[in-house]
Amino acid sequence: MAAKSSKRSQRTGASVPEPRGEPPLSLDRIVATAVELLDAEGLDGLKMRRLADRLGSGVMSLYWHVDNKEDVFDLALDSVLEYRGTIGSQDWRADVLHMLEDWRASMLRHPWSASLLPRRALGPNILARLELLSKTLSGAGVADADLNVAIWSLWNYVMGATITRSSFDLSDADRASGQQRVEHHYPTIERSGLLLDDDWDGVFRKGLDFLLDGLAPR
């Protein structure tokens, strides 16, 4: 583990000469290209040879900057989860809502991230996001004894909503067919039009309001 940390510190900002016509190979360029590859081909599409080909590099050159493919996964994941927003509106709910909507939007732009995040060590960007969220909730009056429950409840909500949205792929015809199947047998679902509701953003925000209502200090 110590060797890995040392290697990262040595490689930061370093570049390795590449064939003429190619930009210098750097950690930032490797991570950005890995994100592009993951966006295009998903988790199974990230192979070191394929990544090197996209970079116009030799595979061995990558190892001046990263330890292995798992390292690339960690770096790519943390890269797309960086929070670049600002808070401090004096409205804690608005700040929390912005942070969580941004988190969900980031994962929807990079669908592989939602399934990868629970399986990886948390990187500095997601930890900074969680710290900011914790600080905001604490400042709003959420007791320290309840803070972990609050954070994990919001985490689970964002992750569940994101994974459901990214994997739910029903056409309008599928929805209509499903609605017909519930008629006369599942009256509450029929009445609410559950299977016809595709307002993903509105549902996410309203559900988050329900959660924040429960977190609001009494």
Rank of each mutant, 00 (worst) to 15 (best):
Q90L: 08
G85E: 11
V66P: 01
V72Q: 04
T86Q: 06
R50G: 14
S115R: 11
K69L: 06
S61W: 01
R54K: 14
R54F: 14
W92Y: 12
R50Q: 14
S89T: 13
H65E: 03
N68W: 03
E70S: 13
A76W: 02
S61T: 09
D95G: 08
M60T: 12
L100P: 12
F73N: 01
L97C: 08
M107N: 06
W92Q: 09
S61I: 04
D74Q: 11
R109H: 14
D71G: 13
A52Y: 10
G58L: 15
S57T: 15
L62D: 03
W112P: 07
S57F: 15
V80W: 03
L81F: 13
V72P: 02
D91V: 07
L77T: 10
R93S: 05
W64N: 07
E101H: 11
G88Q: 11
R109G: 13
S115K: 14
W103H: 13
E101S: 13
V59W: 00
G58Y: 14
D102H: 07
E70M: 11
L51D: 11
Q90I: 03
I87K: 06
T86G: 06
H110W: 08
L77C: 11
R104T: 03
H110C: 10
N68K: 03
E70C: 03
M99P: 00
G85D: 09
M99S: 05
A94T: 11
R93K: 07
W64R: 10
H65C: 05
R109Y: 03
S115W: 01
S79L: 01
W103A: 07
S79V: 01
S89N: 12
V72E: 01
W92F: 12
L77K: 09
S113W: 00
G88I: 09
A94K: 14
Y63D: 01
V66G: 02
W103Y: 14
R50T: 15
I87S: 05
L51Q: 14
K69Y: 06
D67C: 05
V96N: 01
D78G: 05
H98D: 04
S89W: 09
G88P: 12
L97F: 10
A114F: 01
D71N: 13
L55Q: 10
D78W: 04
S79C: 03
E82K: 05
W64S: 09
R54T: 10
L62Y: 07
D91M: 08
V96H: 02
V72F: 14
D102S: 08
Q90A: 11
Q90H: 09
A105G: 02
R50P: 01
